[in-house]
Amino acid sequence: MAEAVTADVTSPINTLGSWEGDGVTVAQIAAALSDLRRHEQRAAVRTSVLTLVAVVRDPEVVDGTIETVRELGTRHPSRTLVLVIADTDEDPGIDATVSVHALRSQGPTVCFEDVVLRVRGPARWHLDSLIEPFTLPDLPVAVWLPNRLPSLGDPLLDTADRVVVDTRAIGARPDSLAQVSRLLRKLPVTDLSWVRIAPWRSLLAGLFEGHASRPFLDHVTRIEVAGHFGPRHLMAGWLMATLELTRAHVHTEEAEHVSIRITAEHEGRVGRFSVERPAAERVIHSSVDIDDGPTVEQTWRLRDRWPSRSLADALTRIGDDPVYRRALRGALELL
C-alpha cells in the first residue's frame, strides 16, 4: 500500500513518498522502492557514496537507530537498510517500510532512501540474503551494529566492506575489546567510541605542539584517564602505546565523561596538561600549565546530534586506521 506524505516545511528533509507492507517478499519491497523513485521526479537523480546496513536486535534502540540513519542522510546520501531482528522463530516473515527522502541543501536537491525490514523466523540467520538485493552496485557496504559485536562466522560479515561497532554501547564486557581485535583481522572496523573521543585526542595533541611544551611529551611521569569502559581504555591504550610508556604510568577510573591529565617533568620544571569535560556541560576544557612557562586554556563545545555526527565521521574515513589498532593493542594490555 502506498501512502501520501505531507512535506515538513521546517525540516531540510522532505519525505517524498513511503510504502509499507506486512509479510512481503524482497521482490515486492524492491519493486516498491523502484516505483517510489520512478514516480518522483525529484528522486530521479542520485549521487550515492555507500550502502549502510544497520542491524538491531534490541527493540529499545530501534527508533533511535532509524532516527540516526535519517539524520545521516544530511551528511552521506546513501541507501540505508535497517534490519530489525525479532528474537523469535514464530510467525516467520518480513514486514517492510520503504521511504524516499529529499534533502534541500545549498545546491541541488539530494535524494536518499531508507528501507526498514522487521525480520522474523529463519531468515534472521541469513541476513546476508536480505542485504544483497538492496546494495547499490559497486559501492562499499558498511554494516553498523549499534550495541553488539558480530561473531566471526556471522554471514553478515560476508556482505560488509566495513563494520561499525561501539565498544561503549556494548557495555563493560572484559572480552569485548579482544573480540574487536579479532574482528579487525577479518575486515576494517570502525569503533564509534574511538570516533567520539576524537575531540579529546586532537585537543590533547594540540597541547604538545610547539617548542614550549613538546619536550614534556618525552618525559611523562603520570597519565590519568577517566571515562566509561571502552573509550577510557582506548584513550589510555593510545597514550601508553604511542608514548611508549609502561602500565605503571597509566591510571584509569570509571567516570561519566572522558577526561585526561598528563603530568611531565622536563629540565626541572613540571608541566600539567589536561583535557576534561565538566559533568553537566557540553564543553571540553583543555589546559597547559608549565612551571615558569606558558599557561593557556582552550574550550571546545560538543555539537548536537552526536550519534549521527559520529556515525557520519566514521563513514567519512573509510581506510584502515592504524592509530586505532595501536590504541586497541594498548587497551588490551591495560585490561
Partner: peptide
Amino acid sequence: DFFYGAAFLE
C-alpha cells in the same frame, strides 16, 4: 550532471 555537493554533504 554530477553535483559535487550531492555526493559529499560535508
